[in-house]
Write a protein that binds this DNA or RNA. Structure first.
Lengths: 210, 210
DNA sequence: ACCATCACGTTAGTGACTAACATTTTGAGC
DNA sequence: GCTCAAAATGTTAGTCACTAACGTGATGGT
């Protein structure tokens, strides 16, 4: 509670942002993404349509959540280069999910509940699903870069792309299931199971970091 | 050459469709997807903008190619249920790619060249890439359905989703590489290599259908 | 207290896409 | 060949996402 955003302006700005996003997700969930216009969201939040676009570049960005790309990429870069690719990437994904959904015992908190609402919209709405898949694709590129394999070998780069994309796909399956289960199942466990189903149990079993 | 579309109307319709699409891909490639309006495409093809929308529901559909979902799904359904999931799906993907890029020795034909142009646009343009990833996601659902596992076991369904999505991701990597290589490398080989990099060489090695 | 900056509002515009209606062209029966 | 229903296309008007330009009031450092 010490280093709060100092200036009042920044606090108000992030507050309106949060407000707009909250109203947007609620309206989208209640009436459907396509049936709600940006003007509707603006009116519900008590701002002008232009303000919505100042905070969110597109209507889709009202729902899309920032993937912790930085966190995952660092975890991948820190992993041992001796391990097989899918274990390096898969382990990093599990660790990142653990870090994200950490402090909760069984019931998700308010933040996590909002995240689940967004995820459900992303899975069910075609336009949002497409954008979400593409943002995962961007994250994939970041992970491949952080793998640190020499760029001189195009074949190694291809293998890194293939293995990473497969891991991301498994994680996406876990994410979808997590949203369907309303967050009741632990996300890291779901990811581990998805990875095991894809690459075999031995590829991820010995990951425990005790 | 025997069972041509009988009626003249249908021939003309598919001909204008082909014409519009050809002009669209050419203009998009030359000037960029975002810089070309649907009105531009219509004018280049000598039709009205409304006619473009009659043939293609959205601007993006001018570039997106129909994935042979039916073919792949049938091949998956016909595969032995005894094999591991990734081998069943991966094998079907390789077979489908083989069937698609069949008759060419080294140089791609006109159809394949057009397909490569579309693919390059899909990879480089964010909006098209997103839609393409989502259409692959739809194909994934079709494959999972055709796997024929009992719907009574939700855990088995989850594993099928995870394994299939990972295979699709590997194939997408191969497809991207194929477009980058301008079709010089054989697509089935690329898919096999991507699958091997993800799941290990033994998961796909013994697939040769001599 | 002064003033540059920032958040927000307003307006006008572009472009993707839809709905409704008019027009022409094709195909099938007579 | 003629007629008529259906299909393909054109035209117009409209909605909505999104952008650019400009104005206004509040904020915060000096």
């Amino acid at each position: 509670m010490s280093e709060r955003q100092p200036t009042l302006r920044e606090r108000q700005r992030s507050e309106t942002r949060r407000l707009v996003q909250a109203h947007a997700v609620r309206l989208f969930t209640d009436h459907g993404y396509d049936a709600v216009t940006v003007a509707d969201v603006a009116e519900a939040a008590g701002v002008s349509a232009m303000t919505v676009y100042r905070h969110f570049p597109t209507k889709e960005d009202l729902v899309l959540i920032d993937q912790p790309a930085q966190l995952i990429a660092e975890q991948v870069a820190a992993s041992s280069a001796m391990q097989p690719l899918v274990r390096r990437v898969g382990g990093a994904l599990i660790d990142a999910a653990t870090a994200l959904t950490d402090g909760n015992g069984d019931e998700p908190g308010a933040d996590e509940r909002f995240l689940l609402d967004c995820l459900r919209l992303m899975v069910s709405t075609p336009a949002l699903r497409a954008r979400h898949l593409d943002s995962q694709y961007a994250l994939q590129q970041a992970i491949v870069d952080s793998l640190g394999d020499d760029a001189s070998d195009p074949d190694a780069a291809f293998r890194a792309q293939a293995a990473t994309s497969a891991c991301m796909a498994a994680m996406h399956t876990a994410l979808t299931r997590w949203a369907e289960d309303d967050g009741h199942t632990k996300l890291p466990d779901l990811i581990a199971r998805a990875l095991a189903a894809s690459f075999g149990g031995d590829a991820v079993a010995s990951h425990r970091e005790d």
